[in-house]
């Protein structure tokens, strides 16, 4: 699936829920299902300070594709983290840099990815792009 096909399938999944409570219930389930990040990585080095909830993020480049692992101490935040990973992991740095993350808006969870909520998600997306940029720069130099 392309990156946008993954986004579209998430939008499809969420279209089954017609009220906010079901959507959040779904996020909570996704948050619970996302395996916690390695305890060794729950450190300041991987921490994205969101003030309200904490997010930990790490990335590796494997065979030219970026692999993200992430976690949060708040479940709703973690649910969104899980969706972002689904969309952005196992993609080339270029795909990540080009990505237009429209799914969040379409599934009615835009407020969670707004700079007015200090949950760390906006900073996390920025950090994911930074990793992509760094991997790309490294690749070009090699």
């Amino acid at each position: 699936m392309t990156l946008n096909e993954v986004q579209d399938s998430i939008v499809d999944d969420f279209s089954l829920f017609d009220d906010w409570m079901d959507r959040y219930q779904q996020l909570i389930e996704l948050g619970k299902d996302l395996p916690p990040i390695d305890e060794k990585k729950r450190t300041d080095q991987y921490l994205i300070k969101g003030c309200q909830s904490k997010v930990w993020l790490d990335a590796d480049l494997v065979d030219g594709k970026v692999q993200f692992t992430a976690d949060s101490d708040a479940i709703i935040t973690k649910g969104i983290v899980s969706l972002l990973i689904k969309v952005l992991t196992n993609r080339t740095p270029q795909e990540i840099l080009d990505a237009d993350l429209y799914f969040i808006d379409k599934i009615g969870l835009k407020e969670n990815l707004s700079p007015t909520r200090s949950n760390g998600l906006v900073a996390m997306v920025k950090q994911m792009r930074m990793y992509a940029l760094a991997f790309q720069a490294k690749g070009n130099n090699a």
């Binding site: 959040y24 309200q52 909830s53 101490d73 479940i75 709703i76 969670n112």
Partner: peptide, 21 residues
């Protein structure tokens, strides 16, 4: 076992303004 931010998010959706953190 429930993070204050999670509680605050759901209360917000119910029209209840509290502060968390």
């Amino acid at each position: 076992d429930i993070h204050p931010y999670d509680t605050g998010m759901i209360l917000d959706k119910m029209g209840i303004a509290v502060r968390t953190g």
